[in-house]
Write a protein that binds this DNA or RNA. Structure first.
Length: 196
DNA sequence: GTTAAGATCTGCT
DNA sequence: GCAGATCTTAACG
């Protein structure tokens, strides 16, 4: 599946970059859906007011303080789920938000789940859209991402070829200056265009 | 029990 | 490009 030792040996901002280019797979009731991760954001526990964990552990963000390699999923703005990969040592409270993927398998299923016949570029180019297309909700909060039905899959070949650039994070009102958003340069499947 | 704010999306201008 | 929808969570009384 995906090398678990990465989560133990690297910092959250490094893992956010390393996840780019790998597969995110989801086995839905309708069939397999998968995509290549092209956009992530790192949320740190220290000196990061934008992180949910910055105000301590609560019922909602409990999964964020759990073991690395698990999922942290929350609901926001009344209609959107956001999917994170928990990182850092247990009890620290750090995670990587998966913001966008490049669709690979199950395009028809994604369109069905999104209930919208949109172009492939707009199918999963945002955290809320991704959770809709991958049928991700709070029932998967805390799920181990090395197990079905939701898991990460290694894709070493592509990772060596792509260029990664860092930009400010999106949609937050605090710590906006930090360069903790990582995107695959030139990808057509980002939630926003490249901004240096 | 009540209220304010939020890691967004969609539709309309 | 921008404003509004919408509802869960957490903080406060």
């Amino acid at each position: 599946m995906f090398p678990q030792n990465i989560f133990l040996n690297y910092r959250t901002e490094e893992i956010a970059q390393m996840l780019l280019g790998h597969y995110l797979c989801r086995e839905t009731d309708q069939g397999l859906v998968s995509g290549i991760i092209v956009e992530t954001e790192a949320y740190l526990s220290k000196n990061d007011e934008a992180c949910h964990a910055s105000r301590g552990k609560t019922k909602r963000n409990a999964a964020m303080f759990g073991p690395a390699g698990r999922a942290y999923i929350y609901f926001i703005y009344g209609s959107c789920h956001c999917f994170n990969v928990v990182t850092g040592p247990e009890g620290k409270g750090e995670a990587v938000l998966i913001r966008a993927v490049e669709p690979v398998k199950g395009l028809a299923i994604m369109r069905e789940l999104r209930k919208r016949a949109v172009r492939a570029e707009e199918l999963v180019n945002g955290p809320g859209k991704l959770c809709q297309a991958f049928s991700i909700d709070r029932s998967l909060d805390g799920h181990n991402l090395s197990e079905k039905p939701l898991y990460l899959k290694e894709n070493r070949a592509i990772c060596d070829q792509m260029k990664v650039i860092a930009t400010p994070r999106i949609g937050i009102s605090k710590a906006e200056d930090k360069q903790l958003r990582f995107i695959v340069r030139g990808s057509k499947y980002l939630s926003r265009r490249e901004s240096v």
